[in-house]
């Protein structure tokens, strides 16, 4: 079990290995399909991409008094090509679910980044790890807007490490 706090350094990326369980505490940013399509063309995003952790998620609405609704990961492969320019601009860690394509994995190794998975479908469990939520960009996208999340011991596993290893058994690229 490794405890990490973003921003994520190159040294941290190098130290992570496939199957490592990581507990993240600190700031991560949400973005999924539509937010990625906009973010890649954004010259001055309202958060620092360098060392950033991006979480692929579109939560359910929060009830009054709750920080967030269910917020498990969405399938990552849809963000493969859009993740490349973000890694080139310094994003170091992406959290989602499921396998990703060859081009993504090559870019990940080239740009010294790491791909994590959280438990898909565990939306209520993962919500309990989120302590604060703040809207940052693209309010009109509703659940797809970019939020800054303060997390505490958010559990995830290293799925692709920077050394070229994969946690997955079934895979398009296997």
């Amino acid at each position: 079990m490794k405890k990490l706090t973003p921003p994520i350094s190159n040294e941290t990326v190098q130290s992570l290995r496939v199957g490592d369980k990581v507990l993240l505490s600190g700031t991560i940013y949400t973005a999924r399909d539509q937010a990625h399509m906009r973010l890649v063309n954004e010259e001055n995003p309202s958060f620092d991409l360098n060392g950033a952790v991006i979480y692929y998620v579109g939560p359910t609405p929060a009830r009054d008094g709750e920080v967030i609704g269910a917020c498990g990961p969405t399938s990552s492969y849809r963000m493969d090509s859009l993740a490349v320019p973000l890694m080139e601009r310094g994003v170091k860690m992406m959290i989602g679910k499921g396998n990703r394509g060859k081009d993504f994995r090559e870019s990940m190794q080239k740009n010294n980044a790491v791909y994590m998975i959280a438990t898909g479908g565990a939306g209520a469990l993962l919500a309990s790890k989120i302590k604060k939520r703040e809207l940052l960009m693209y309010e009109d996208l509703g659940p797809e807007a970019i939020y800054k999340l303060d997390v505490e011991n958010f559990p995830c596993f290293v799925a692709y490490d920077v050394h070229g290893n994969s946690l997955f058994k079934g895979d398009d690229n296997a």
């Binding site: 998620v57 709750e66 498990g72 969405t74 438990t119 565990a122 209520a124 596993f157």
Partner: peptide, 28 residues
Amino acid sequence: SVSKSILDDIIENQKIARRGIIPLCQDT
């Protein structure tokens, strides 16, 4: 072990959802 730990999370998740505040999954 990793698969087992994920199955533990899935079982724990449905217990939390059952309280009626947060749904099982964000993709409803």
